[in-house]
Simulated scan of single mutants.
Amino acid sequence: MAQANPVYPVIWQTDHVLLIDQTRLPNEYDSVEVHRSEEMAIAIETMIVRGAPAIGVAAAYGVYLGARDIETGDRAEFLTQLEQIAERLRATRPTAVNLFWAIDQMMKVAYYTEGSVDAIKTVLLETARTINADDIRTCQQIGDHSLSILPSTPAKLRILTHCNAGALATAGYGTALGVVRSAWTAERLERVYADETRPRLQGAKLTAWECVQEGIPVTVITDNMAAHCMKIGMIDLVIVGADRIAANGDAANKIGTYSLSLVAKAHNIPFYVAAPLSTIDFAIADGAQIPIEERNPNEVYQIGDTILCPTTGVEFYNPAFDVTPAELITAIITEHGAIAPSELRDRLKAKSAIEI
């Protein structure tokens, strides 16, 4: 299959970061220049950049941008100010563990790098760029590993996905949509069915846009159509991404994922999670401990300038994520291959030997 120009949502540009403004897609393809750490924090909070791996990469650059602006040459004072910058970035999105993982990697480098403050700043930039490049390679490995575990029949698969776990949600290529890309390249894909993913419509706006860029056949359905589509035989498997996976295999992903897993189970359809090992939070025993971000209620009652329902005398609830229990997940597809959720604890024992 012919390959389209790759999409890279987070790019280092000599002295600043260039972000694709995902709030403007699919109607406008625009970018935002980020020169300061606070600008990066705002970009993450306002979902200019979104998706757990992409947020992690962006946050790594945010740490460097903050470090670059620290004027002191005193190492202890520098590290104190850098911790404040790291805390600001950690506060932007509470559920996506890749955010915390990337910031922790940057802070470890800051503490363990010997030499001057300028030397630390240099290594911080190198580390952020390495995190960026590693994420692209990791997503490609996830896609490659998926080919050996996808159902052998039918010859060409019809895959349902939820939210956006594509190139836009990572440093490039994607996790769940990376699996789709690999299946398309290997001529194992017939069509993608993209849940629209209320309330922010990432499936309709972003997943569909990415598929169009590469000529991948895509059909957008509303979230409440999934059960019907499965019942009449339109779906062969479900693949989603994840923002945080607990040690027991429970996985947090965009709101609506849990209900999708229940429907897939009812119809005996495989349900896969595609995510890098850095998304697994071994410090959390199960999904009950995963913090769930609640967002502004206006995302529920308003799309653009259109008000969808009464706003006076009505309450709104807007959790951004839900947790799918491990027993509903067929396998977690990582850069090290497919792992049954029950095997993650073994990974915990060996994690010191795994570079994540």
Results as ranks from 00 to 15, higher is better:
1 M>L: 12
1 M>E: 08
1 M>F: 07
2 A>W: 14
5 N>T: 15
6 P>F: 11
7 V>W: 13
8 Y>F: 15
13 Q>A: 13
19 L>G: 00
20 I>Q: 00
22 Q>E: 11
24 R>F: 07
28 E>C: 13
33 E>L: 14
34 V>K: 04
37 S>Y: 02
41 A>F: 06
43 A>V: 04
45 E>H: 12
48 I>N: 05
53 P>W: 00
54 A>S: 12
56 G>N: 08
57 V>N: 04
59 A>K: 01
63 V>Q: 01
67 A>M: 06
67 A>W: 01
69 D>R: 15
69 D>H: 12
73 G>E: 12
75 R>Q: 14
76 A>F: 13
79 L>R: 09
79 L>Y: 11
79 L>M: 14
83 E>C: 11
92 T>F: 02
95 T>R: 08
95 T>C: 11
96 A>H: 02
100 F>W: 06
103 I>S: 00
105 Q>H: 03
107 M>P: 06
108 K>W: 08
111 Y>P: 08
112 Y>L: 15
112 Y>A: 12
115 G>M: 04
118 D>H: 05
119 A>H: 03
119 A>G: 15
121 K>M: 12
123 V>H: 00
125 L>H: 01
131 I>M: 09
131 I>W: 00
131 I>G: 02
132 N>W: 09
132 N>M: 14
132 N>T: 13
133 A>G: 06
136 I>Q: 02
137 R>F: 00
137 R>H: 08
139 C>S: 11
142 I>F: 01
145 H>I: 07
146 S>I: 03
146 S>V: 03
148 S>V: 10
149 I>G: 11
151 P>L: 14
152 S>I: 13
156 K>I: 01
156 K>G: 04
157 L>T: 04
157 L>A: 09
158 R>C: 07
159 I>L: 07
159 I>V: 15
162 H>K: 04
162 H>D: 07
165 A>C: 05
175 T>A: 04
181 R>T: 13
186 A>E: 04
191 R>Y: 02
196 E>M: 08
198 R>S: 07
201 L>V: 09
201 L>C: 04
206 L>I: 09
212 V>S: 12
215 G>E: 10
226 A>L: 07
229 C>G: 14
229 C>Y: 14
230 M>Q: 05
233 G>Y: 13
236 D>N: 09
237 L>P: 02
239 I>A: 10
240 V>L: 06
241 G>A: 00
243 D>K: 04
243 D>Q: 06
250 D>G: 10
253 N>E: 13
256 G>V: 08
257 T>R: 00
257 T>A: 05
257 T>L: 04
261 S>D: 15
262 L>F: 11
263 V>M: 15
264 A>R: 01
264 A>Y: 03
268 N>T: 11
270 P>C: 12
271 F>T: 05
271 F>V: 07
274 A>R: 07
279 T>R: 06
280 I>N: 03
286 D>I: 02
287 G>H: 03
290 I>D: 02
296 N>H: 15
302 Q>G: 08
305 D>C: 09
307 I>S: 08
310 P>Y: 04
310 P>G: 09
316 F>H: 14
318 N>H: 09
319 P>W: 13
321 F>P: 06
321 F>Y: 10
323 V>K: 03
323 V>F: 08
329 I>W: 05
331 A>D: 13
332 I>S: 05
337 G>K: 00
342 S>D: 12
352 S>G: 11
352 S>H: 15
355 E>W: 14
